[in-house]
Design a protein around this nucleic acid. Structure first.
Lengths: 151, 151
DNA sequence: ATTGCTGCAAAACGTTTGCACCTAT
DNA sequence: ATAGGTGCAAACGTTTTGCAGCAAT
């Protein structure tokens, strides 16, 4: 295990519920933290399978949900009906700009955004939970845009 | 047909491409504009079917895509991997607050949000296309929250 | 006459579930 | 001993596709 600190957080989270500590869950944690960028649950399953892991698809899906619950990873939706995850361990809060041509995802953060969601939730009689802010655009530089998403 | 103006916009859009003017497409337009709030493509298909329309599921899905292209309706994603639509004809730009307990969707608009997406796109070397800003919260007033989404 | 559109059913896709067996507690 | 987790395959819900016949141009 490469990341003792994340492992410890997950272990504590599991114990605090009625969840068991299993080797499969830590295999998924490690693979998720190792992944650079955003991944779908199935992507991760395939990667693990190709790396000769015997963890099942069902376990990968369920474990990612647990990891999102304890905020070691975060869940993202970029408008294509696929749930994506990214490690949020030791990463700062940020939002995303997605190129609609090539699918590239750029992370950014803007101080103006920070206070808006909580204020609006309060103002409308809701307890704030989370928010998602995605910008969709097109790479200006065609050399940097592979158009790979244009099926 | 109840909305001559929208009909005309759609007709022009269809002619401007290589798309044909068909009665089915206008049936979908009418049903979509009539719907109050946000709907999934399949919801609309079922509603039309129950109203004795003979328009097929495939045609509903394809036509909604066309209507979104010409901006008579807009596409929304609220984080549950279902594509939702809402009429955007004669409606002002707005964002959404979603109750994670009951699924209620509140529309709001905040002047601070308006300029951010374009500025950030420019700053990162992208041509701005669109954005989505969703806030997730929980109804403070339990009487107003039906928890119907808690399967 | 041509080419695009239709309805239908089947397939595709990401995801969830049921179940028998297994394992952490 | 028991509650909970596992892998597998099947089921699920939404969306897309292939195709033969049909209709707008």
């Amino acid at each position: 295990m490469k990341n003792k600190q994340a492992e410890e957080i997950f272990r504590k989270f599991l114990k605090s519920g009625k969840n068991r500590i299993t080797p499969e869950r830590f295999e998924v944690l490690e693979a998720a933290l190792e992944f650079e960028g955003h991944f779908g649950a199935d992507d991760l399953y395939i990667i693990m399978k190709n790396a000769d892991s015997s963890v099942s698809r069902a376990t990968v899906y369920k474990t990612l949900e647990l990891l999102a619950q304890c905020e070691l990873i975060s869940k993202r939706h970029f408008g294509d009906n696929i749930t994506r995850y990214e490690s949020s361990f030791k990463k700062q809060v940020h939002d995303h700009l997605i190129c609609v041509d090539c699918g590239k995802i750029i992370e950014f953060s803007d101080p103006r955004i920070k206070q808006i969601p909580e204020e609006i939730s309060e103002g409308l009689g809701f307890n704030f939970e989370s928010y998602s802010f995605n910008i969709f655009g097109r790479c200006k530089d065609p050399k940097k845009c592979k158009n790979y998403r244009k099926k």
